[in-house]
């Protein structure tokens, strides 16, 4: 529950909860690190005689990757169909989770009665390892896309809920005074002051939510599915194709980096006034 610790810490320090690390593709240190990792991998496999069902040779992983990527997008052997299935379910779930998180987080921040009603449950649920609920959700929603979407939505809901709530409450009182002195309505204050003010927090939540949505979809696929990257991994595991598992993990890792980059890019477009520069 490190994410929860992050959120709690951010609520105290009043700063958006997100690793503000930039994954910069231009950084030479990152590339050197990767090269060292691969070299020590090659060295370990060749010098220590590790069996390939424990740690495959890098070239075997590259071959597995290639066989999955260098096919027609419609091929049942490639990564494209399962990737699309996983991604689309994760995206729908993420949209639902983020939307609900934003709406309920806003209601909690605006209406004290709702805060008092929802907050204890939100914290209790947040402390619960949510993937543990996944089997229950499979019972409710079946083995189709429904359970994947539901688990993705559940996992992406909480970071957005907590972050939007924290961000909306973190408004400088002077800005609220300004809107009050102008007799602005509650909705005007929300739209013009509170929501933009909370945007860096909400994006930090969104950053976590996209990764969690992917995680949710994969976990749901582990529990039973006909297609998806989770199925690719379990099928490879079933025949001890460790190189295939590695290849699928690399695909998911790259996907996570791409999603993170997209969120960062959107944040830079929306939060254009340099809220982070100031801090």
């Amino acid at each position: 529950m490190t994410d929860f610790a992050n959120i709690a810490a951010s609520a105290i320090s009043q700063k958006p909860a997100s690793s503000r690390r930039r994954i910069s593709l231009g950084s030479p240190i990152a590339w050197i690190g990767l090269a060292v990792l691969i070299l020590s991998w090659i060295a370990a496999v060749n010098l220590l005689n590790i069996p390939s069902y424990i740690l495959p040779k890098p070239e075997a992983v590259v071959r597995a990757l290639w066989s999955g990527l260098a096919v027609s997008p419609a091929s049942s052997l490639g990564y494209y169909l399962p990737l699309w299935s996983t991604l689309s379910n994760a995206a729908v779930g993420c949209a639902i989770g983020v939307g609900l998180g934003l709406v309920i987080g806003s209601l909690m921040a605006e209406v004290e009665a709702i805060e008092r009603l929802v907050m204890p449950y939100a914290f209790a649920l947040q402390s619960l390892p949510k993937v543990a609920i996944a089997p229950l959700i499979v019972i409710w929603f079946g083995f189709g896309d429904g359970s994947k979407i539901a688990i993705s939505a559940l996992l992406s809901f909480f970071p957005v809920l907590i972050n939007s709530f924290t961000g909306l409450r973190a408004v400088e009182p002077e800005r609220i005074d300004l809107m009050r002195s102008l007799s602005a309505s509650r909705l005007e204050t929300y739209r013009i002051v509170k929501l933009p003010n909370a945007a860096p927090f909400i994006f930090a939540g969104l950053d976590m939510a996209v990764v969690y949505a992917l995680l949710g979809a994969i976990v749901a696929e582990f529990l039973g599915a006909q297609r998806g990257m989770g199925v690719v991994i379990t099928q490879a595991q079933a025949v001890s194709d460790v190189a295939g598992v590695f290849a699928a993990l690399i695909i998911l890792g790259v996907l996570g980096i791409v999603l993170h980059g997209i969120v960062r890019w959107c944040e830079a477009k929306v939060v254009h006034w340099g809220a982070n520069r100031k801090k």
Partner: peptide, 19 residues
């Protein structure tokens, strides 16, 4: 106490947009 996400003109116009 200006709102950083608005241009100077929008900040100055704010009192005419609300209330």
């Amino acid at each position: 106490n200006l709102l950083p996400w608005m241009t100077v003109r929008d900040n100055v116009r704010l009192p005419l947009r609300v209330g």
